[in-house]
Design a protein around this nucleic acid. Sequence first.
DNA 1: GTCGTACTTGACGTTTACGTCAACGTAAGG
DNA 2: CCTTACGTTGACGTAAACGTCAAGTACGAC
Lengths: 126, 126
Amino acid sequence: MARTWTVGELADELRVTTRTLRFYEAEGLITPQRAGANRVYSQREHARLRLILRGRRFGMTLSECREIVDMYDGAESSEQRQLQILLARLDEIAADLRARQADLRRTLTEVTDVAAQCRARLDELV
Amino acid sequence: MARTWTVGELADELRVTTRTLRFYEAEGLITPQRAGANRVYSQREHARLRLILRGRRFGMTLSECREIVDMYDGAESSEQRQLQILLARLDEIAADLRARQADLRRTLTEVTDVAAQCRARLDELV
DNA sequence: GTCGTACTTGACGTTTACGTCAACGTAAGG
DNA sequence: CCTTACGTTGACGTAAACGTCAAGTACGAC
């Protein structure tokens, strides 16, 4: 039996509110099953949500997040044309991520430089 | 003579609108000089803005951006207590950035994996 | 049987980060 | 002198991403 979650459980685990999970559903980012009226989240939703939340941490909008998670499904498509479009988009995204990496590296260098300056100033004051 | 910019020039160069620059000023993120009523942006503002916009690309809020750019000024402070606080905060930020790097690396790996899957599927279809 | 807890939908509120007028001043060009 | 281009402030609008009630349902514990 695969693990499932209620809203509350999943919200707790992912450190978001239940409101957020319902909102994401209303936006079509996730589509949990139902047990009567209650939502039942499966591994699939769990995985998608982790991707979405990671995207959000990088400042992506929800629709950008949606685009990405939807691609994970699309990769099993069998239509050549679809796959080609998908692949092109994935390469774009990868390029963007690499640019961000470089950007992040620069930022980190700058921050550590300022910290080093700070330490130098502190040493002078001794 | 150090280079200066008008709102329009700087907005064009940084690829934002003049509205954005005025908004940032209203929020206290930058404080351009004036030539009469007109704003005059110097290297200082130019540098701060580049930092701010980079922060924004990483999903930071404007107040988080403000905190960071203000630190670059604070590093020249001469009060020991101030410097220690600043340094502690900088180390926190650096740690956060490193976490983001790892996160970004994972994301990139996943994206390239999906792309590889795609390519495999495409090869099968030949 | 009612108390507490967790779930439901729906509606409205809120913050952030600007966009979009409106109404006006000013300096250069034809 | 008039237009055009750029600048100014001020006020209001807006999209995104939730927060915050309200009102109701369902279920196990006591």
